[in-house]
Design a protein around this nucleic acid. Structure first.
Length: 292
DNA sequence: CCTCTATGGCGAA
DNA sequence: TCGCCCTAGAGGC
């Protein structure tokens, strides 16, 4: 599940359940024990996402930096924590105590369990700053500056499909949003970044902001327009891991929802690209193809 | 039971 | 470009 929308959603959930409260922090699995001890029984000040990185802030300017990688999961739930089934590397449990009483008022007991993450580490304010500084603009952040991404893309010979996934160019875009954004903008994934027009990029950025905000709201990645939904087209809804309705992601060999051509796939930098060869030609006349 | 795959990214070659 | 990190679900035998 972890593209940027997932991390922003988790940050919100952590704030809702733990901000302002003193929490117990542990590592049943054992690999984070020492660091957990440092922030154990201290207050959660906040939680924030930058791209796919999650930073949980504790008092004294200490942060737990989490990156879920491909298959990491952070479960945030109300109630008492179950016995730690599986390899729980980080567990946060609310104590019901707060430095400021109002912060704990009306809150339900809650816990958060982290499994399978690529990164779980304690970082300082300075390290946090360095991490944030090296990430490209995140479409889910109010302070994001798309001009920074455009400066990189417009100067690069690299395929736009690679640039969109480069976290130093854009923060938070993963393989699903990449594939779907390129489809929605009729753009071939291997087209060199420097051949894009500024207006094309800005339209993609605006679209991405909306798509990812929707993703934060629903917890899924849905990218098909109303006229291409299962209900509108009379097909069975998609049912797999991410659960959303998409045009091309993991649909290789199947007919394009817009033109019927077979969706293609190819590996680029160890990740699968998916695109429609008819809707997303490398070169397009000004008249263009029918808009998907 | 087994193998394969995945919405990611790092570091070694 | 490849192996690895290390989890869980799907599908094959």
């Amino acid at each position: 599940m972890p593209e940027g929308h997932t991390l922003h959603r988790l940050a919100g959930s952590l704030r809702d359940h733990f901000a302002g409260q003193v929490v117990e922090v542990s590592s049943p699995q054992g690999r984070f024990v020492e660091s957990a001890g440092v922030v154990d029984r201290t207050e959660v000040v906040g939680a924030d996402a930058f791209g796919k990185h999650l930073l949980i802030g504790f008092e004294a300017q200490r942060y737990v930096h989490v990156h879920l990688g491909l298959y990491g999961k952070l479960e945030v739930r109300e109630g008492a924590p179950p016995p730690p089934v599986g390899q729980v590397r980080l567990r946060i449990v609310s104590t019901g105590k707060a430095r400021v009483d109002a912060a704990a008022a009306g809150r339900h007991p809650a816990f958060a369990d982290l499994r399978g993450a690529t990164i779980c580490e304690l970082v300082s304010e300075e390290e946090r700053g360095a991490l944030v500084a090296r990430l490209g603009p995140d479409p889910l952040r109010d302070d994001a500056d798309p001009a920074r991404a455009w400066a990189r893309i417009s100067r690069s010979r690299a395929p736009v499909g690679a640039l969109l996934m480069d976290q130093e160019v854009l923060g938070g875009v993963g393989n699903v949003y990449r594939a779907e954004l390129l489809f929605r903008h009729r753009m071939h994934p291997l087209r060199p970044g420097r051949t894009l027009r500024r207006g094309q990029f800005l339209a993609m950025w605006t679209d991405l902001v909306q798509l990812m905000q929707d993703g934060v709201g629903t917890g899924r990645i849905d990218t098909v327009r109303v006229e291409h939904t299962p209900e509108a087209m009379g097909r069975a809804p998609r049912r797999d891991d991410h659960g959303g309705e998409v045009y091309v992601y993991r649909r290789h060999g199947q007919p394009c929802l817009v033109c019927g051509a077979k969706v293609r796939t190819e590996v680029l930098a160890a990740r699968n690209l998916f695109w429609c060869p008819r809707c997303q030609p490398m070169f397009r006349s000004r008249a263009g193809n029918r808009r998907p």
